[in-house]
Design a protein around this nucleic acid. Structure first.
Length: 181
DNA sequence: TCGAAGATTCTA
DNA sequence: AGAATCTTCGAA
């Protein structure tokens, strides 16, 4: 799947190569673990919408809500492989080598100029930010899974999924594999 | 109201 | 390995 960012006449596209799943009160690593708060409210909303939060005083992270309204669930987009608009992404990430443009959740939001203004945006339809099927046919690839990164609880769950050997995955790890086409 | 922790990134 | 940086939320 592709993440598409439209800014005026400019369209930026990235192939999603790494994600993590987050649940609700059954998932101690989730923002929604202790119930609804002002920040995590989008996680309890309609599926297919953006949940964007600000963290560590510097970075925005983008999630897609996944469960029906009233049930918390989201997928964190952790990395994308730039497909279109590379030059613009570089402008948003001055001085950064190409391979590190979008290989992390905070990096990709900066490369695509994503911030709180897009919180709760509908990602299922054309707009400033949405997710679509890849335009061109993909070669077969292998998805691996591993524990989620940067959390202290819930590490026993293999809820991180990433494209094997892709340069833009934030970091490698071992896990089971399954091939998709 | 206060303070500790945080789904990170960058530098040394 | 440690700093930067500031919002968020639970506890008091």
């Amino acid at each position: 799947m592709s993440l598409v960012r439209v800014i005026g006449r400019t369209t930026l596209i990235g192939r999603i190569v790494e994600v993590e799943a987050y649940g609700g009160q059954n998932d101690p690593a989730s923002h929604a673990y202790r119930g609804i708060t002002p920040r995590n409210r989008p996680m309890f909303g309609e599926p297919g919408h953006a949940y964007i939060y600000f963290t560590y005083g510097n970075h925005y992270c983008l999630n897609v809500t996944t469960r029906r309204a009233g049930v918390a669930g989201a997928v964190l987009i952790r990395a994308i492989e730039p497909v279109k608009g590379l030059n613009v992404m570089k402008r948003f990430r001055p001085g950064v080598p190409e391979g590190q443009l979008s290989n992390g959740p905070g990096k990709l939001t900066k490369a695509l100029a994503i911030d709180r203004s897009l919180n709760e945006a509908d990602l299922t339809r054309s707009g400033p930010l949405y997710i679509g099927r890849a335009r061109s046919r993909q070669l077969p690839f292998t998805i691996r899974r591993s524990p989620r990164i940067g959390i202290t609880l819930g590490i026993e769950r293999l809820w991180r999924f990433y494209v094997e050997s892709n340069q833009y995955v934030s970091r490698a790890a071992s896990g089971n594999r399954r091939t998709y086409r």
